[in-house]
């Protein structure tokens, strides 16, 4: 064994140093920085008379009776979106619409957040002004449909002040393909005002969304 070691000593040294180097790299990656988990919420019904309130940090729907609390972060009713802060709730929430691809947004912007005000929500419920496009009577798409605009994300501060990114994927039950005959025909189109969205929260208060 000794002779073996002796004989191959330089090579072992090289291997050893390589192992150390590699482990150092590993250490770099596994800093205590954020690993955020991406969650998808399917078919959140926002068609009722009350807003559908959602707790992003707890990944659970909140009853509307708790609307005056900091339990919830985001709420939906029809095309309207509320953020828990300002006129909408007691939280410190604020939001803005950011352009990009969900997975590529690695950091929440430092500034630019707007707090909901009476009649002026941070996320404007109007076609082409925030997250959706209303097709109206356009000839080549499903008419009178609400379609999320590609690359429009909501970046928000939760009720507790943590950063989150949200992408609304569908306004229709079952997140349907919007180009099928079934969707195009108003008589067979799935129920509207039913949200599917994906999101990620950074619980440690930093603006980073690495995963």
């Amino acid at each position: 064994m000794t002779t073996y070691m002796k004989k191959y000593y330089p090579l072992c040294l090289m291997l050893l140093s390589l192992a150390v180097m590699t482990s150092c790299d590993d250490d770099d990656e596994v800093t205590p920085e954020a690993v955020v988990e991406v969650e998808t919420v399917s078919d959140l019904d926002a068609s009722g008379t009350h807003y559908a309130f959602y707790d992003l940090e707890g990944n659970t729907e909140v009853p509307y009776t708790d609307s005056a609390s900091t339990e919830w972060d985001i709420a939906f009713k029809g095309t309207s979106v509320l953020i828990n802060g300002g006129s909408s709730g007691p939280g410190t929430g604020a939001a803005q619409v950011v352009d990009g691809i969900f997975a590529e947004i690695e950091e929440a912007p430092e500034t630019g957040y707007v707090t909901d005000a009476a009649g002026a929500p941070a996320i404007v419920a109007s076609s082409d002004k925030s997250w959706y496009h209303y097709t109206g009577t356009e000839a080549n798409v499903a008419q009178h449909a609400i379609l999320p605009i590609a690359g429009k994300l909501i970046v928000l501060k939760t009720a507790n002040g943590n950063y989150a990114k949200v992408e609304i994927l569908s306004y229709y039950k079952g997140n349907p393909n919007t180009t099928t005959e079934e969707f195009v025909s108003l008589s067979t189109r799935p129920t509207s005002k039913v949200y599917t969205f994906q999101y990620a929260v950074q619980p440690n208060g930093s603006r980073e969304f690495l995963d």
Binding site: D128, H133, E138, A139, N140, V141, L147, P148, I149, A150, G151, T179
Partner: peptide, 18 residues
């Protein structure tokens, strides 16, 4: 081009042409 179908309001895919 006749109108957007893929959510970016620009003309970029075949289905958007007549």
């Amino acid at each position: 081009g006749t109108g957007d179908v893929n959510g970016n309001q620009i003309l970029d895919v075949d289905q958007e042409y007549a």
